[in-house]
Write a protein that binds this DNA or RNA. Structure first.
Length: 724
DNA sequence: GTTAGGG
DNA sequence: CCCTAAC
């Protein structure tokens, strides 16, 4: 199962001075060459703009007043289908839901039924004494409380908050909240236009990496831009809980509570709005993004993966190297507008077919932008480019939560759409970030795991990812904007038309400094004995992923679940486990998963979409499965008999029953065996291979090498041989 | 589809 | 293990 989370932002516009194209084009080239660090500043500016837009809309009758507006879905992640299917959910609760929010539980213990809300933990009395989580829950509760108490605080839904709740272990829970869209507005010095910064708040249980980075960036922005920060309050929640229940609000980072941003209000006022709300003032650079942790307690929540006996492994942003390499390619694609999308992407109707790749199979980085798809769950998509006001989103969000979910393992990215039509003012450009995805996650979980466990695993993975820190990257015309110091104008992001090529990405900080794009793949892999290779609910597969993506999973049914990367080494030969009850659900889940509708028609594909997805994107690296001594012995024996160069025969002879050992694997193993035999024992790693076998390896290798040489000589110099 | 090698 | 070129 893959859950995809998206956070949508809407940019209604910011004014940016127009910039001569010529200069821009030049810049593009430069940027294009380098696709490394992102231009955080720019990104934030854009975000700010979005936030501002949202804010404006909020004020605007259109967006707000309706009760529906309260339902704003922006930035929500919704789960598709039923709870099992909807690991992630982001919603803006409507008022009714709000009332219940405090009751609403965000995090569930893996042990507990995933389907059940954690409400119990949030008791009205505010005492949450349960376990580790209590602290967290209490925070949540508080936040919720704030919201509840201060209805006004609630955002139109403009802002997006992604909250992730994860319980790493039965006893431990991790909750992380990310508020992405705060509303902060920044005023451009020279520009009449306003740019609003979205404030991001992360509630990072263990690490504040994100916060730090974000805050820094933001801070910079503020300084340079003199932008007051507002707090946005959209929320995205990943919940284990039932769908029907109103999404719980998660507080923005740390102490920050949701607060309503009022343009008219001084920042200080904002701070006051909610007792719990922490508003970052310019002074507090660090806190700006809401990095502040409510309490140190949160740290205690470090996730440990412990779901029952299950082992779950997540690989986050694996292979950054590859990603980096590929990123360039991807970036190029970014420019592509929605219209240009590859049919593959465009066809998002095939969701039912989404497949979930097997648990063990890590995806290679996938960079996909579903520019088009982004959309609102609302179905706004059908309108094409038109984006609805936030309220629409809110309204529909609840019902259409499914749409929000994306299966795409796509890299986390913010897709910003720019719609010229959106411009309220001539000078303003409206951008909308359609999605904000979580970077790819790999989750490994036994088939026997419960849905709740799976959800937990997802949460944990997300949390882990976030904990590492995220940063915003911007891509313009396929090129990464690296210079944070440049203004939008300078960069050429001044007009709507320019925005088409503008894309935002979230990149994990921790992982790799140079990682250009993050793949946001959520990928739950639940292998089933019966259908080891079936992909279920592959996150982005239908819409985004290339149909040909190959799945590397355990081929052998023997392993029910293979941990990613040796998770379960013992599993190699472990007896097959009973069929996972989840297996049946998988399919359903996948069906339920619905891709996010595409953005507006005009949609600009803010994010580069790779027109030609590389094969690598869809392929997953197989899990590593070290050869056992017995296997080595069998290999040696076979090679001694058959010689090198006949790997297929070796395979058939000695490993015919080992589905997961290909002849290439055997060849590679032999190669390594030879190498191992030649090096000193001290240099050898892994399970020691008996020296006796190594000796045989060397002997056999020498023998067959000689044979080959002889053969070659005969071939090349038959006469010589004859003479000899 | 196999092999052989580099990564 | 992956990826590819070469067969």
């Amino acid at each position: 199962m893959v859950a995809q989370k998206r956070i949508d932002y809407e940019f209604h516009g910011y004014q940016v001075p127009t910039k001569p194209r010529a200069a821009r084009s030049t810049r593009k080239r430069d940027i294009f060459q380098k696709r490394v660090e992102d231009n955080k500043m720019c990104a934030f500016d854009l975000l700010a703009t979005v936030a501002d837009t949202l804010l404006q809309e909020k004020q605007n009758p259109i967006t707000s007043s309706d009760g529906s507006s309260k339902k704003d879905q922006h930035g929500f992640i919704k789960e598709e289908g039923q709870d099992a299917n909807k690991p992630l959910k982001a919603e803006l609760p409507d008022e009714a839901s709000r009332d219940r929010r405090h009751q609403h539980g965000f995090v569930k213990e893996g042990c507990l039924d995933a389907n059940k809300p954690l409400k119990t933990e949030f008791s009205d009395d505010g005492s949450s004494d349960k376990k580790c989580f209590s602290t967290l829950s209490s925070q949540v509760y508080d936040q919720n409380f704030c919201l509840k108490e201060n209805p006004h605080l609630e955002i139109d839904g403009q802002s997006c908050i992604a909250s992730i709740v994860t319980s790493s272990s039965c006893s431990e829970r991790l909750v992380s909240d990310i508020l992405v869209n705060g509303k902060s507005r920044s005023e451009m010095k020279n520009v009449t236009s306003k740019v609003e910064l979205g404030s991001s708040r992360y509630l990072d249980c263990s690490d504040c990496n994100l916060d730090g980075d974000v805050s820094k960036v933001k801070d910079e922005l503020q300084k340079s831009e003199k932008v007051p920060l507002g707090t946005g309050t959209g929320m995205c929640c990943f919940e284990d809980t039932m769908d029907e229940k109103p999404p719980a609000l998660v507080s923005s980072g740390g102490n920050a509570k949701l607060s309503q941003y009022d343009d008219s209000l001084p920042r200080s006022s904002l701070l006051r709005r909610c007792d719990n709300v922490t508003v970052v003032s310019k002074d507090d650079d660090e806190n700006v993004l809401g990095c502040a942790h409510p309490s140190s307690k949160t740290k205690s929540f470090r996730s440990k993966t412990c779901i029952g006996d299950q082992r779950i492994r997540k690989r986050l942003a694996s292979k950054y190297r590859k990603v980096a390499r590929e990123s360039k390619h991807d970036t190029l694609s970014n420019n592509v507008s929605d219209r240009n999308f590859n049919p593959v992407y465009s066809s998002r109707k095939n969701y039912s077919k989404r497949q979930i790749s097997q648990m063990n199979i890590p995806f290679k980085k996938r960079k996909i932008f579903d520019c088009g798809s982004t959309s609102n769950s609302n179905g706004d998509v059908r309108n094409g480019c038109t984006y609805y006001s936030p309220k629409n989103d809110m309204n529909q969000g609840g019902s259409r939560s499914s749409s929000w979910m994306r299966k795409d393992p796509e890299m986390s990215s913010l897709a910003a759409h720019h719609n010229s039509t959106l411009r309220s003012r001539d000078s303003h450009v409206k951008l909308r970030i359609k999605s904000f995805r979580v970077p790819e996650l790999f989750i490994e979980i036994p088939e026997t795991a419960t849905i709740g466990s799976l959800k937990k695993a997802v949460m944990e993975a997300v949390t882990t990812l976030i904990r590492g820190g995220l940063r915003v990257g911007m891509i313009l015309h396929g090129k990464k904007l690296r210079d944070d110091s440049k203004t939008l104008l300078q960069t050429g992001i001044s007009h709507d038309n320019e925005l088409d090529a503008l894309g935002f990405t979230l990149e994990p900080n921790s992982s790799s400094q140079s990682l250009p794009l993050i793949c946001a793949k959520d990928f739950l892999h639940v292998p089933s004995a019966d259908t080891p290779r079936s992909l279920i609910g592959h996150s982005s597969s239908p819409a985004v992923i290339h149909p040909t993506q190959r799945i590397l999973g355990f081929s052998d049914t023997e392993h029910q679940v293979t941990g990613l990367g040796n998770l379960v080494e013992s599993d190699h030969d472990s007896a097959p486990s009973p069929i996972n009850p989840l297996g049946g659900q998988k399919l359903s889940a996948s069906k339920e998963l619905t891709p996010i509708p595409e953005m507006g028609t005009e949609g600009l594909a803010m994010l580069p979409v790779d027109q030609k997805p590389k094969r690598t994107e869809i392929s997953q690296r197989r899990i590593r499965r070290p050869f056992s001594v017995a296997e080595v012995e069998a290999l040696v024996e076979a090679v001694e008999t058959l010689g090198t160069g006949r790997w297929r025969d070796v395979k058939l002879r000695a490993f015919d029953d080992a589905k997961h050992r290909t002849y290439v694997d055997l060849k590679d193993k032999w190669k390594t065996l030879v190498h191992t035999a030649r090096i000193s024992p001290q240099q050898r790693r892994g399970e020691p291979v008996p020296q006796e076998l190594l000796d045989r390896v060397l002997t056999a290798h020498a023998y067959w090498s000689q044979q080959q040489q002889t053969k070659q000589q005969i071939k090349n110099h038959p006469e010589t041989c004859l003479l000899l």
